[in-house]
């Protein structure tokens, strides 16, 4: 019962903060509410008793990716006048939600419809088991990811580097 309460609180927090994230005007507000959303997702991983994803979420998303975003916002020194002028923001968002709503409804309907048999009780997944699974069955994607990261590293340096005019 208590875990249900915690889940409901975290889920509400997550949905509200992500709504604030997509609807606020200033980028820094949006980034900070994204932080709250990411931390609530970490909490949801905790209710799922997945210790590894809990710590990964905090270190990688909240720690690395989001601080990179905030760093970029500071680095570019974005003033309010440089923000996009969005006079029809509310109208656009309502129209988009009308388009997105059927997709969401269909997905939720199919999830309600399908039966998930032989569900277990929630069990703690240890880091050791995750590592074994990663290296026993998913070693190829793991290696490929390293090449993907190399490509994106070299690519972003290539693109962001300033060059003399030619």
């Amino acid at each position: 019962m208590l875990s249900n309460m915690i889940f409901i609180i975290l889920a509400t927090n997550l949905l509200i903060s992500s709504f604030v994230m997509i609807s606020t005007k200033r980028v820094i507000d949006s980034a900070l509410s994204m932080l709250i959303a990411l931390l609530s997702i970490a909490g949801i991983y905790a209710t799922l008793q997945s210790s590894f994803m809990f710590i990964t979420q905090i270190i990688i998303y909240a720690g690395a990716i989001l601080s990179l975003v905030i760093f970029i916002i500071m680095f570019l020194n974005i003033k309010d006048k440089n923000l996009p002028h969005e006079p029809h923001k509310t109208r656009d968002m309502i129209l988009t939600s009308l388009v997105v709503f059927p997709i969401t409804a269909v997905l939720i309907y199919f999830i309600k419809l399908s039966d998930f048999s032989n569900l277990n009780e929630k069990t703690t997944s240890s880091i050791g088991k995750v590592g074994l699974e990663l290296y026993q069955n998913y070693v190829l994607p793991f290696e490929l990811i390293s090449i993907l990261l190399l490509i994106s590293l070299v690519g972003s340096i290539t693109l962001a580097r300033k060059e003399k005019d030619v």
Binding site: S23, V100, T104
Partner: peptide
């Protein structure tokens, strides 16, 4: 996912 979808389609700020 749907919230993210709405944000990605309707906003014009690239960071958002």
């Amino acid at each position: 996912f749907s919230l993210g979808l709405i944000g990605a389609v309707s906003r014009r700020n690239i960071i958002i």
